[in-house]
Simulated scan of single mutants.
Amino acid sequence: MTKKDIEIRTTDGTARAGLFRPAGAAKAGVVLYMDAFGPRPALDEMAERLAGEGYAVLVPDLFYRNAPYGPFDAKTAFTQEDSKQKLMALVGGTTQEMTIRDTQAFLEAFSGEGVTGPFGTVGYCMGGARALNAAASYSDRIVAAASFHGGNLASEAPDSPYRGAAEIKARVYVGMAGVDSSFPPEQSARLAEALRVAGVDYVLENYVGMSHGWCVPDHSAYDAAGAERHWKHLTAFFGETLG
C-alpha cells in the first residue's frame, strides 16, 4: 500500500487529497468523504485499510476553501466552545452543492492517476450524505455508495439525500448508530421509503448500542467491536459491487 499526496483542481480552487493505492492493480476507485474534523491520521488509517482490500482510495479535504484550518481533536473539539464554533462554520460553509461539484474533479483525479471505474463512495458523519448525493449526481459512474453514522440523510433540507433517490442507480448501504439525533427514526423511515419507491437496491442497518462516530478510531464514540462490524459489512458490500 502506498500513499500519494495530490492536489485537485476544482471550479473553486485546489483541494488537497491523499490517494491510497493497493500493492497491485486497483479493483476500483473509492472516494472516502471525511467527517467534520477533516483529513487526519485516523482517516488515513481507514483509507489504508480499505486500500488493503484492493481499492484506490481518495480522501479529499472538503474544507479546502477555508484552508488552513485546525487541526481539531475529534475527542474534544465539540466540547470546547472555540473549536466548536470553528467547526460549525466549516461544516455550514461547505454545502452539499459544493461537494457535489467537487466530486466531478475527484472522479477525474482517479483517471489522472490511471484508475478507471467503476467507482464507489463511503462517508462518515457529514460525509455520509455526500456519499449518497454523489451517487445521485454521478449515477453513470458510481455503482456503490455507503454511509456510516451519516446525519440528516432525510431531513427537511432541500439538499437532503433522500430527495435524490430517484436518480440513484448505485447499490446503497446505510449503517445507522443505535441512537443518533442527527438521523432519528423518522428520517430512517423516510429514507427507506424514498429508496424503495425509487427502486434502489439498498440496505439500512441499525447498529444497536453504537453512538454517532463509532467507526472512526480517534472519535470519542469509537467502539472497537462496532467498528470491526462496520468493516466486515463495508468490505463485503464493496466486494459485491466493485469486485
Score class of each variant (00 low, 15 high):
95 T>A: 14
46 M>C: 07
103 T>D: 03
70 G>R: 13
104 Q>P: 00
160 S>P: 06
207 Y>R: 01
50 L>Y: 01
202 Y>L: 00
90 L>G: 12
79 T>A: 14
137 S>E: 12
207 Y>S: 01
189 A>S: 09
65 R>V: 10
233 H>G: 14
180 D>A: 03
204 L>P: 06
239 G>I: 09
150 G>M: 00
22 P>D: 13
176 M>D: 06
154 A>M: 08
198 A>N: 07
182 S>E: 08
77 A>R: 03
142 I>S: 00
106 F>N: 01
12 D>K: 15
203 V>L: 00
81 E>A: 15
87 L>G: 15
188 S>E: 11
135 A>H: 09
186 E>F: 09
113 E>F: 05
128 G>Q: 06
66 N>T: 12
98 M>H: 15
158 P>V: 12
145 A>Y: 06
170 A>N: 06
206 N>I: 04
25 A>D: 14
81 E>T: 12
44 D>I: 02
79 T>E: 15
102 D>S: 10
140 D>G: 12
184 P>V: 07
243 G>E: 13
70 G>K: 12
51 A>T: 00
213 G>F: 03
47 A>R: 05
165 A>W: 04
10 T>K: 01
61 D>F: 08
95 T>F: 11
77 A>L: 05
134 A>S: 14
122 V>T: 10
13 G>V: 01
178 G>W: 02
232 K>G: 14
131 A>V: 04
174 V>F: 05
31 V>T: 07
179 V>N: 13
18 G>H: 15
69 Y>Q: 13
116 T>I: 08
220 S>V: 14
213 G>W: 05
3 K>E: 13
121 T>Q: 07
85 Q>G: 06
60 P>T: 14
20 F>A: 11
147 S>D: 07
120 G>S: 05
149 H>P: 04
234 L>F: 04
27 K>G: 10
202 Y>V: 02
129 A>P: 10
33 Y>A: 09
242 L>I: 13
141 R>L: 01
136 A>E: 12
62 L>N: 13
219 H>E: 09
177 A>H: 04
131 A>F: 07
222 Y>I: 09
44 D>L: 04
47 A>Q: 03
6 I>H: 02
229 R>W: 13
172 V>D: 05
28 A>L: 13
71 P>Q: 13
34 M>P: 05
12 D>M: 14
131 A>T: 04
55 Y>K: 05
90 L>R: 06
135 A>L: 10
50 L>G: 01
4 K>V: 03
160 S>T: 10
85 Q>W: 05
209 G>T: 02
227 A>W: 05
97 E>W: 09
190 R>F: 02
14 T>I: 14
223 D>M: 13
107 L>F: 03
169 K>N: 08
195 L>T: 00
156 E>C: 06
202 Y>D: 00
61 D>P: 12
146 A>D: 03
149 H>C: 04
137 S>I: 05
139 S>Y: 11
224 A>K: 15
79 T>K: 15
185 P>Y: 00
53 E>Q: 07
200 V>E: 06
30 V>Y: 13
226 G>F: 07
80 Q>W: 05
21 R>C: 14
196 R>I: 02
211 S>I: 05
132 L>W: 11
133 N>W: 01
100 I>H: 03
34 M>T: 15
201 D>L: 03
16 R>E: 14
59 V>H: 10
39 P>M: 12
72 F>Q: 09
91 V>E: 11
38 G>Y: 09
87 L>M: 13
115 V>D: 04
223 D>Q: 15
15 A>L: 08
224 A>W: 07
